[in-house]
Design a protein around this nucleic acid. Structure first.
Lengths: 230, 230
DNA sequence: CGTGCAGTTGAGCAAATTCAACGCTTGTGG
DNA sequence: CCACAAGCGTTGAATTTGCTCAACTGCACG
């Protein structure tokens, strides 16, 4: 158990509905980001838990978040990582199907679902954005499924490429998550992650600097390793 | 290559928009099914292919459908099976991210996406139904991902239970798909499928009659095998 | 300077794949 | 009607892959 007060600080306690109106008094198409308030989380803090009411969703302003489910045998299945700019926690049902944690200190934009949904009924732009968020979730889920059909080395290679693309855009990747997180995401053990990283480094595909910093030396080799890519 | 004319027959060639109006002249909430036409497919016929325009989606009236992607190394990843009553092929993007095949002779209800989307803007009931279809897709994808973290026996057991639930509601299951389809869905080889089925039968959990017919003898044993269920 | 945590490395083992052979069913052509 | 080939499924043996368990390293923190 953690102390909520010590780990979470609300910048704008209410979900303020600042309506942007043009000079003619009509409300202009508004970005969905304008209807929420930001909240800070320290690292390793639960943002929401499975089977709680799903009455809000979030955008990662800074930091990183993981969503996961705990399986009956105690294993943890990490569903997805969400980084700067990503939305997460939007569900159709009333209750959550996964839990969410902050991986590092994170600033989140929190958006009430009911507010967004109500706005979406009249504001086509908002509706389109929600649609996009939804579709992205499906894409992430499918990509993850595709990952889980690969062998261990391919999974790790694909993971590094995914992180590089979504994170930095460069070949220098600073992984915010632990080996355990990666293992639970890729569906292998931490030992296997370790071995595969060492193996990739041995073949000159990457360089490891410290525990979290990875340099992609040879994207072509990595890419060919995940030849099994869709 | 197959002959389209020999394998597909259109019952209602146009996407008829039969508007249902109440006595007061207002159009009443309409079911999404009323805005499409039915098409027949013989078995093993492509319904749509990856990267084609995604301008329609379907409901399975009878028969069975698989969606899949072909990976770079030639392996086929079956994304999902769709049975009587299921919707499939609804995408947010303009192009398909997967292909779809009929598994057996199938009758499909085909719904134009643009028509459904336009209606959804004014008809809240239609919008809600599209929402539901979307969410179901995400659920299916997540369940599939969860499946891929299990071991072989658990995958097969979970698959049989899933099929029994979605198919018959009884313990008597008639699988419409081949071992290859199941293998490509579960991410294991056909030999493993065969062995696991034999194993389950040996332990009295199921009975096999012919290649396609499975009787679930002991759901509790099967359920405990997929203890790793979410 | 110990303690604890995160990660790495190695040896043995279990699980699933690969490769190969075989059985059953179906469809085809003589 | 029979022979035979092709397709689908099953079974067995050898091999590979990744896991388990255990020891060990490096680092942070008291």
């Amino acid at each position: 158990m953690y102390n909520v007060l010590s780990s979470v600080s609300v910048e704008r306690p209410d979900f303020i509905l600042a309506s942007r109106k043009g000079p003619d008094g009509h409300s202009s198409p508004r970005r969905i980001e304008s209807i929420g308030g930001t909240v800070m989380y320290t690292r390793d803090v639960e943002i929401f838990g499975e089977s709680e009411p799903a009455d809000y969703f979030c955008k990662v302003v800074s930091g990183a978040v993981r969503t996961y489910t705990v399986l009956a045998d105690g294993r943890r299945q990490v569903c997805a990582f969400y980084l700067r700019g990503d939305f997460f926690g939007l569900e159709a049902n009333e209750t959550r199907t996964s839990s969410a944690d902050s991986i590092v200190d994170s600033k989140l934009l929190v958006i009430k679902r009911s507010v967004a949904m109500t706005l979406a009924q009249t504001d086509e732009e908002i509706a389109r954005q929600i649609w996009t968020i939804w579709d992205k979730e499906l894409q992430i889920s499918r990509a993850h499924g595709s990952l889980l059909t690969k062998n261990a080395k391919e999974r790790v290679a694909a993971f590094l490429l995914e992180m590089a693309d979504r994170f930095s855009g460069t070949d220098q990747v600073e992984l915010p998550m632990s080996r355990r997180d990666i293992a639970d995401y890729l569906g292998v053990t931490i030992e296997t992650i370790s071995r595969m990283l060492a193996d990739l480094e041995g073949h000159g595909a990457i360089s490891l600097a410290g525990w979290r910093r990875v340099l992609l030396r040879n994207r072509r080799v990595l890419g060919q390793l995940c030849l099994r890519e869709a």
